[in-house]
Design a protein around this nucleic acid. Sequence first.
DNA 1: TATTTCTGTAACACAAAAGTTACGTATATC
DNA 2: GATATACGTAACTTTTGTGTTACAGAAATA
Lengths: 108, 108
Amino acid sequence: MAQPTLDIFQVIADPSRREMLRLLSKDSLTINSLAENFDMSRPAVSKHIKILYSAGFISIQDMGRERYCTLKQDAFKELQEWLSYYDKFWASKMKKLETLLNNKAAKK
Amino acid sequence: MAQPTLDIFQVIADPSRREMLRLLSKDSLTINSLAENFDMSRPAVSKHIKILYSAGFISIQDMGRERYCTLKQDAFKELQEWLSYYDKFWASKMKKLETLLNNKAAKK
DNA sequence: TATTTCTGTAACACAAAAGTTACGTATATC
DNA sequence: GATATACGTAACTTTTGTGTTACAGAAATA
């Protein structure tokens, strides 16, 4: 329940993990059914899943001996927040440029 | 001019590089003035800057023997696009849940 | 109960990333 | 012209990540 909170940026740095997220956006999948899509051993996939889970990208439902992985919004929101900081940066930069141009036009 | 296009996710995975972006959101800085903020050698910073540049996170203006680094929107937009795919995912998921609840209510 | 299936983890190997020092070069300054 | 400054790059070391195989356990199945 208590995620140790891995570095979300580090987590999505791996192309395989991003592909896992993409697959899970189509459907919830078990570890094995996920692994079928990759050219790597099942334990490797299992590790990736653990990482995605720890960072809050997915949740996991235990169904008997199977474990279903589902996308979870938490980590995505964190990324969005990080990006929004720079969104604001661009917005204010544009605004400054705009007023600068307006002033120039006024002085003419 | 022609960026070899590094993996932007890999690029922001490094905490030092993210800190550089944050510093550059405050002000354009030279390599040296950037390096003063970090507990690493100047060549190390120089390498990070090269990576940020190659991925399209910053632009560089040569001023004599100095090089001023400035944030560039390109890579940020790529990240935003990646995230927007999942934004849509969450939106449609919410919608499905909503209609499901509505149907249940109607049957009552 | 014996066996198969689905999974996690430990121990290890290997490749990639990130750091260092030691250099070289171009632009300012004296 | 000699020196100092701002930087890039090459060669190397160290650390981190990602993969593997081998094993163990718990749930289904025979």
